[in-house]
């Protein structure tokens, strides 16, 4: 927690916070990082294998193989979410399964499944981007900013 927030607390609250902190088990950050590296690496290697398959057997180029590869990973992640496996993988893998495109597919699929009981329009449709929405909003905005930077550099005679 930031220093600014801690300052708002009374001395008793600050004291308790320290008291509790000494007794709370820490997130195993190093272990989580190693697991994320392994799991993320495996997912990306599978993706690489799929891309290679599309290029070798289906005549895609390195650029055009990207779309079907992503589609395969998304379908796999959605199926794993639906069968109730993905959240167990994620508990072990952490960021390793959250950062690749499979994590994004999981956010949408899990929200859609969860809100199925509220109907297709208000439930599934209205809630499926509950978690993914901010990724899309800030993803599009950052792409826009990057594009502006690139245009500016070009206009100034750069790359």
């Amino acid at each position: 927690m930031s220093n600014k927030k801690i300052k708002k607390l009374t001395p008793t609250q600050q004291e308790y916070k320290r008291f509790a902190k000494e007794r709370v088990p820490k997130r195993p950050v190093l272990l989580n990082t190693i697991r994320a590296f392994i799991a993320g690496g495996i997912i990306c290697t599978i993706g690489q294998g799929v891309q290679w398959m599309f290029m070798t057997y289906f005549g895609f180029s390195e650029v055009t193989a990207g779309n079907p590869t992503v589609a395969v990973l998304i379908i796999a992640a959605v199926l794993l979410t639906g069968f109730g496996v993905y959240d167990h993988i994620a508990q072990w893998a952490g960021a390793g399964s959250a950062v690749p495109v499979t994590g994004f597919a999981n956010t949408i699929a899990s929200a859609a499944i969860e809100h199925r009981t509220e109907g297709y329009v208000l439930g599934v449709g209205g809630n499926m981007f509950k978690l993914a929405g901010s990724v899309i909003a800030y993803g599009v905005f950052s792409a826009f900013v990057v594009a502006l930077v690139k245009i500016t550099f070009k206009a100034l005679g750069g790359i």
Partner: peptide, 17 residues
Amino acid sequence: EKQFRYPTEYGSQKPPT
């Protein structure tokens, strides 16, 4: 979980607490 946290099938890593 649906009301207070994330969808049950969402892959978030829960802390030991």
